[in-house]
Amino acid sequence: MDQNPDIALLEELEAQRDLHNLNTRYCRGADRMDAEMLGSVWTRDAQVDCGAFKGPAQEFTTAVTTPDAVRERSYHAISNEYYEVDGDTARGEVYLIAISTLVENGSKNDQWIGGRYLDTYKREDGAWKIATRAFVMDWNMNKPTTAVWDEGLFGMIKLRGTRDRSDPVYALLGAQA
């Protein structure tokens, strides 16, 4: 335990920053379908409960980073990050709006899910990791896809997100992505 109260405050701020970065990394790993990145956010024995999946986080990672015919893209936008840090453990609530495009019965639909991650975190080997994550759904909205990719203003935006390592974020952040 550090005796200097200023250092203790500094460590608290750094923990809040690190937990924020952990959650942005989770979103990036999920949206890029990067098994290594998403796999790096968990403690060794982490558990996930998100309704359709309940079990070890590494199995969850494999499941959501394996290409499937239904989910064409995803966008995990988080906010309202609230963390309570207690030494090497922490609890948190993080709001999520997840937008996905689903290919179902030959048609494309946009799925919006609003909800919260209810988490516990642990510092493992000096780095903050998610120890348990439970997802709570608060609302959802489903609409036929109306995305425009090739015309108008949207068509002019030539840089596009991908669900693999060709996404521009890897060129930007390199090994720190």
Partner: peptide, 11 residues
Amino acid sequence: RKLIMDWNACW
């Protein structure tokens, strides 16, 4: 600054 498009809708 670069702009990357992931998704859009036109309602």
